[in-house]
Amino acid sequence: MTAITATSQKAPISSLATIRTKADLAGITLAIILTLAVIVPLLVVALWAFSEVWRYPHLLPQQFGLRFWNQTLSRDDVWDALGLSLRLSTVVVAVAAVICLPASYAFSRMRFFGRDTLFLSFLAAHAFPKFGLLVTIAAIFLRLDLIGTFWGVALIQLVNILMFMIWIPVAAFQAIDKRMEEAARDVGAGPLRVFWSITLPQAAPTIIAALLLSFVTTFYETDGAWLIGAPEIRTTPVLMIGFINNEMVIQYGAVLSVLLWVPSAIALIFARRFIGGDAFARGFGG
């Protein structure tokens, strides 16, 4: 993302080079603070997931083991929630891809009435305090009997990722040299063929990254799922809230966290490689 661009921009600054040791001190301080604030909590969760006994005030678990993995993974509610979350994310991302990719293409390559305004209208979903927006949507869903239904939650998630799914592909399509498409027309490809054989493959890495990002975002979305879905529709994060609030066995939450976090982190780091700094920074107005 932007961070990637930032590193590459970092040209040597001769006038600051003289204070290099000082800058390194600052770096070490920041690194230590961030390690304590970011890495330690995640490590502690990982430790909890693999500990069978960890009583205060022992610095490390007294007994490590996979007992709670077995227990967590034999719970029906965990499998139900995981299954539901997977189904929900797949459906939402698939629907988003079907409706958003053609729209992105239109935004990036066609001219039509109100194009710029309509394009910016997707900002609306992010220009209001999110939970307030969710409550007003919930009020509408109440009249439509969508509260506590799969499709109610799916619609909320769809709106949530709409901007990603429009803006990132638009940036991808715009980054493609138009001459590439013209060259394909030139050798005899019709417009649809050009889109399928040239435009889509060229934009594919970025689009896949957007899909991945949307999938993970939907999988972990908590606010909307809780407000619209709970208790009937129990996605994994909703289940996790239950674990945090009511579960006496600490390890269940830890196991679930590790289970969920590792693949998503890998997926997201992968996604980050493909999404250019521009696409991201633009979405955030930076």
Partner: peptide
């Protein structure tokens, strides 16, 4: 353009970077 008996060489090459040389030439 796809119906015209013309062929264009672009300044930016406009080669399809997701295909290899053979596929670029063979596409038409």
């Amino acid at each position: 353009p796809e119906r015209r008996p013309t062929a264009m060489v672009f300044q930016s090459h406009a080669l399809w970077s997701h295909m290899n040389v053979f596929k670029n030439v063979a596409f038409g």
